[in-house]
């Protein structure tokens, strides 16, 4: 099978602390003070601790792997190990600090609850919005519309604004859209967490068939080992931003479960 994702020595560095809350007033003050040769009034503000608070943090550290067409890859690891971070980079929501990611094909991603739905729009409008966001044409979406609604089982609520949906209904519709619209690569982050057991089973079965019957590539993050084992052909284990193991699902999951047991 041909290669469709190549992750090459990817690192992602975040800066911890409150650096993001810069205000124009503060910068102006600092600049004005510097201009007059005075001490920066804002340097004192945080006290000595401020510099340390803005420390750098590696959410991903030199991660490399490849995915082939039709692969179903599970990414596992404890909270904060960098799973969502790698998915965000793959989905082009942010860039790696070092390294590169190359992708072939259309990517549809469903990152945690609250996918790019617009709360004030109805389910129907959101299906079209989401489809267009994936780069689909209107007629392509219309073709699949009935199937999407049937799969999500929210028929009766399709013309209600999605802000009135329960979180399970929300994710049902979001998953149905992502699964039915054309995209070569499907990226899913913990989407099963809020669905009920019936829907979880249905999703896993659907993903399996997407991979097996339609040859779609799936990259899947879940905290439920059973589903990863059931669905994935390969798995990747992350620990504190580093990839510690990659390969066949079962051995990787064994290692992960050993890690969980401590």
């Amino acid at each position: 099978m041909a290669l469709c994702v190549s992750v090459d020595h990817v690192s992602k560095q975040y800066i911890l602390g409150n650096f993001g809350y810069g205000t124009f007033r503060h910068d102006l003050q600092s600049w004005w003070a510097k201009l007059r040769g005075k001490e920066d009034p804002n340097a004192k503000l945080g006290g000595p601790g401020l510099g340390e608070a803005n420390e750098e943090f590696m959410a991903l550290n030199d991660v490399s792997f490849e995915v082939h067409e039709g692969d179903r890859v599970g990414i596992v690891g404890r909270n904060g190990s960098g799973k969502s971070t790698i998915l965000k980079i793959l989905s082009r929501l942010t860039t790696p600090t070092r390294g590169s990611v190359k992708i072939k094909g259309r990517v549809a991603s469903l990152l945690e609850v609250g996918t790019g739905f617009h709360p004030d729009l109805t389910g129907r409008e959101n299906v079209y919005l989401n489809g267009s966001i994936l780069g689909m044409r209107r007629w392509e979406i219309r073709e699949k519309f009935e199937e999407i609604v049937a799969f999500s089982e929210i028929n009766q609520f399709i013309d209600t604004p999605v802000k009135r949906y329960s979180s399970g209904m929300y994710i049902r519709l979001a998953f149905a859209v992502a699964a039915h619209l054309k995209s070569e690569i499907l990226i899913l982050d913990e989407i099963l967490a809020v669905g009920d057991m019936g829907f979880q089973q249905k999703c896993v079965a659907k993903m399996k068939s997407l991979g097996q019957d339609e040859g779609r590539t799936i990259i899947f993050v879940s905290h439920i080992p059973g589903y990863v084992k059931e669905l994935c052909t390969r798995a990747i284990l992350l620990r504190k931003g580093q990839m510690v193991m990659e390969g066949e699902t079962l051995p990787v999951m064994d290692e992960y479960e050993r890690e969980l047991r401590g």
Binding site: I89, K104, R106
Partner: peptide, 14 residues
């Protein structure tokens, strides 16, 4: 070599 043969659609770097 194999990596270079693929016609990539997106390249994501810093």
């Amino acid at each position: 070599e194999r990596t270079d043969e693929v016609a990539w659609d997106h390249v994501i770097t810093s």
